[in-house]
Deep mutational scan, measured.
Amino acid sequence: MIINNLKLIREKKKISQSELAALLEVSRQTINGIEKNKYNASLQLALKIAYYLNTPLEDIFQWQ
């Protein structure tokens, strides 16, 4: 199981879903879906999320 901390980290950094989506060149709905565990981010997208949030990938998506 993967624990998804994207919403928590994004909100801590005061970045909206729309802002993050624009940086990543995806839709806001994609970010929303990832945060609600409706969609799994591809490895490429997960790495981009970590880069733009300046946060280690394993802090955003944790295996349990």
Rank of each mutant, 00 (worst) to 15 (best):
Q17D: 03
S16I: 04
K48N: 07
L6M: 10
Y39P: 02
L47G: 07
E35L: 03
Q17K: 06
S18W: 10
L6I: 06
E35N: 03
K13S: 08
L47F: 11
N4K: 03
S18L: 10
T55K: 04
D59P: 03
K36H: 13
E35R: 01
L6P: 02
K13F: 09
E35F: 03
V26C: 10
Q29G: 12
A50T: 03
T55N: 03
E11L: 10
F61R: 01
I34F: 02
T55I: 05
R28K: 13
Q62V: 14
Q17M: 07
L23G: 11
Y52W: 10
Q17N: 01
N40S: 14
L6Q: 01
N32C: 10
N5R: 08
I9E: 05
A46R: 10
L20V: 02
L20C: 05
S16T: 14
G33N: 15
P56G: 06
N5A: 06
E11V: 10
L8H: 14
A41F: 11
N4R: 02
Q62S: 10
L8E: 15
W63H: 06
L57C: 08
K48C: 07
T55F: 03
T30Q: 09
V26K: 00
F61Q: 01
V26M: 04
S27V: 02
Q44C: 14
K12A: 14
N5P: 01
Y39T: 11
I15Y: 07
I2N: 07
G33L: 15
I3N: 10
E58S: 13
N54Q: 14
I3E: 07
V26Y: 03
L47M: 12
A21P: 00
L43D: 04
N54W: 05
K7Y: 05
R10V: 04
L47K: 14
N32T: 09
L57M: 11
I34T: 03
Y51N: 08
N4T: 03
A21K: 02
K14V: 05
I31N: 00
I49C: 07
I49W: 00
L20W: 02
A22Q: 13
A22V: 10
I3Q: 11
Y39C: 15
L24P: 00
L43E: 07
S18Q: 12
S18T: 13
M1Y: 14
M1L: 14
N5H: 08
K13W: 06
N54G: 10
I15F: 08
R10S: 01
G33F: 11
L47Q: 14
R10D: 02
S27Q: 05
L24H: 00
Y52G: 03
E58P: 09
W63A: 05
Y39A: 10
A21N: 02
N37S: 09
L43R: 13
I60S: 01
Q44D: 14
L47C: 15
T55H: 07
I31W: 03
N54C: 12
K12R: 12
K36F: 05
E25G: 15
P56L: 04
A41P: 15
Q62M: 10
Q17V: 14
E19R: 12
E11K: 12
L45V: 06
L57R: 03
L24Y: 01
D59K: 10
A50Y: 06
A41K: 01
A46S: 08
I2E: 05
K14N: 14
I34N: 02
S42C: 06
S27D: 13
E11A: 08
L23V: 13
A46E: 02
K14L: 09
I49Q: 00
E35H: 04
I3T: 13
K38E: 15
Q17G: 04
A22P: 00
L45W: 03
N4Y: 05
N37T: 04
S18G: 12
K13H: 10
L57Q: 02
Q17C: 04
A46M: 14
K12P: 00
S42V: 04
L20A: 01
I31Q: 00
L53W: 03
T55G: 02
T30S: 05
L24G: 01
